[in-house]
Design a protein around this nucleic acid. Structure first.
Lengths: 145, 145
DNA sequence: TTATTTGCAAACAATTTGCTCAGAG
DNA sequence: CTCTGAGCAAATTGTTTGCAAATAA
């Protein structure tokens, strides 16, 4: 995540949230996550540090942080919602369908074209998401499968 | 939808599906739908014509048609999956967040850039989705609203 | 103190599945 | 007649909520 371990106190104060034990751990785990964990995975990591924390608390905290604009919620093909820090430059995602890995990328060109399209239709963009589901390129040459 | 009312027999035969009463109705309703209905909404429309049809059957038929490549499944922000015919030229969606309306658009330029990005990362595109969430542009100038 | 926050269990919404019977081919 | 498909209800999955007890400020 983009916010650091030290930002946690600041983040809570800033948004009028009480700095509770569970929140501290949840945000710490978020801060250390390089991937895009879903609520259940996050809960798994959190309870490794602090076994008492309920899944419901994780959900409530995630919802809260999203609402405050700290996190962004994504819905990649599978059912669950996945989260990442919102305070970074906007980017889109490549999802490797074979491994589930998520790769971030950014294309100013595409961003620009989107603006243009929205404008042409008489709209302003609120948000947008571009997900490219991919699989490793097969080198062809020699025998195929 | 793109496939016509008459294609139904053909579609079933083509894919080795039995042309049953429920399927006939479900596909007919799909054929007549101009929007992107979810399973429950579809079921609502279907039971208006043929009250006995179970929701499970709608789900099974949708899954089947998706698997056969007849339909495309979308996940716009809200939980449920929404469907549209797949046998049309690929396009993306503008979603009006104020009304929920979905507008289709296509940008060859964006399609090309996506290919390029995937290739640069060493992947082939399996599928992709671009959703732009928008709201009507406010004309500033004179009084608004 | 006292308004938030938590844990727990029950509630939910969307979708899937097991099973037995009906009906298409 | 045979095997696919349907209906129904129960099961799953991911997420939310009610409520009494715990706790940050």
């Amino acid at each position: 995540m983009t916010f650091s371990d030290d930002d946690i106190v600041k983040l809570c104060k800033e948004h009028g949230l009480r700095l509770t034990g569970p929140r501290k751990v949840i945000m710490q785990v978020l801060a250390e996550s390089e991937d895009h964990p879903d609520a259940v995975e996050l809960h798994r990591r959190v309870t490794k540090i602090s076994p008492g924390v309920a899944l419901a608390t994780v959900y409530r905290t995630l919802a809260l942080l999203e609402e405050k604009g700290v996190l962004e919620r994504h819905q990649f093909g599978d059912g669950r919602a996945r989260f990442e820090s919102a305070d970074q430059e906007h980017h889109d995602h490549l999802i490797n369908v074979e491994t589930g890995d998520v790769i971030e990328f950014r294309s100013d060109e595409i961003e620009r074209l989107q603006e243009e399209i929205a404008r042409q239709h008489g709209f302003d963009i609120v948000s947008h998401k571009l997900e490219i589901y991919v699989k490793p390129r097969k080198k062809r040459r020699k025998k195929a499968t």
